[in-house]
Design a protein around this nucleic acid. Structure first.
Lengths: 202, 202
DNA sequence: CCTACCGATCGGTAGG
DNA sequence: CCTACCGATCGGTAGG
């Protein structure tokens, strides 16, 4: 009981640090954020942060890896149905929903990960490539089956992925459009873009 | 003659500094690049750079403003024809061509400008908004005329703009696809996405 | 969680 | 274009 409470409290502290860092990294960039900035947001001294994290770069690395694993899992779930059109819609809507609701995390895997080096950077790149490869192979299969009509599946997948991830850059909770509205429209965009026969299906 | 040579040399120096900075800013980010890094690339001392530029931030600001003005001019040129479908294709292809051939500059106006503050930042934001607004208004007009079929022109314009600018992130000159191939495909993507009747026109 | 402190590096200036 | 130098700040450690 005491031990459990202690673990929760420590986990809570760690999550607090990660949350404050994420907000600052997204607003000012990883290199534009100092450990002192993060500590200030938490009303603590900078050295205290090292009780909860190994280093500044480990913080970024952890966020990137966890975010990409989450995205990969969502992608897999969205690929469970048999209909190509519906599958593309679900893959796109899922990605847009995630981008709109995890804007800071998406900014990390979209750009900030470049500040990692060595194996940490490569691991993030590998996860990104895995995600892109699955998207691309899926569109390739849909083209072979005749469900999609697009000359270069790679370009279609890049276009769909990047327009969906970019939602994280401009979406605002206070804005006029709900996450669902954006997700549905982008699902339709993806179907049209891929030249899907059953264009507006849903 | 001597004076002209001198002006050329000075202009050349300034361009050298800007070019080296642009490469490093694109690779490592603005905050991840020091004046010493730029100087090292030019095999010079860091203080010497200040003979050619006012400050690190002025360097970024100048690049962003010039790049956005160039993009706005290209956009205007692409909007000269009367046909909505052809106009959308030209606007998109022009943007993709620019993104593929000015990858570093596009990275600056897409993200790095956040490291500017005050008026410098606002000026860049204003130019960006001007560009986005013209794109959005154009799609709105095309929808009213019945040439496009899309429920929310704002979302269609965001999708087209962001997928086009993202070309700067992944395009490689050494890659298998020419700039023209990518531009044409993306032009088709934009027409489909906007629900343009004459979908594949060109 | 704190204070005290480390060497390295930051953007930029002075002066020639 | 250089050397010499500025105060500020960087990520991180020691020690409690």
């Amino acid at each position: 009981m005491t031990k459990l409470a202690g673990q929760n409290a420590n986990g809570g502290r760690r999550r607090e640090v990660r949350d404050a860092a994420l907000t600052l990294f997204a607003a000012n960039g990883y290199s534009g954020t100092s450990m002192a900035d993060i500590a200030r947001a938490l009303e603590r001294g900078a050295p205290s942060l090292y009780n909860h994290i190994a280093s500044k770069s480990a913080l970024l690395h952890d966020v990137c890896v966890e975010t990409l694993n989450e995205i990969l899992k969502l992608q897999q779930d969205a690929m469970s149905t048999s209909d190509f059109g519906l599958q593309l819609r679900m893959m796109t809507e899922t990605l847009v929903r995630f981008s709109a609701t995890h804007r800071r995390e998406v900014a990390m895997v979209a750009r900030e990960f470049i500040h990692l080096d060595g194996d940490a950077r490569q691991e993030v790149l590998d996860l990104r490539h895995q995600f892109e490869r699955r998207f691309r192979d899926f569109i390739e299969r849909g083209r072979e089956s005749g469900d999609f009509a697009t000359p270069r599946p790679q370009l279609a997948s890049y276009a769909i992925i990047e327009m969906s991830l970019a939602v994280a850059q401009w979406y605002r909770d206070e804005g006029p459009m709900s996450v669902e509205t954006v997700a549905e429209d982008y699902g339709t965009f993806a179907l049209r873009l891929a030249g899907c026969c059953s264009n507006e299906s849903k």
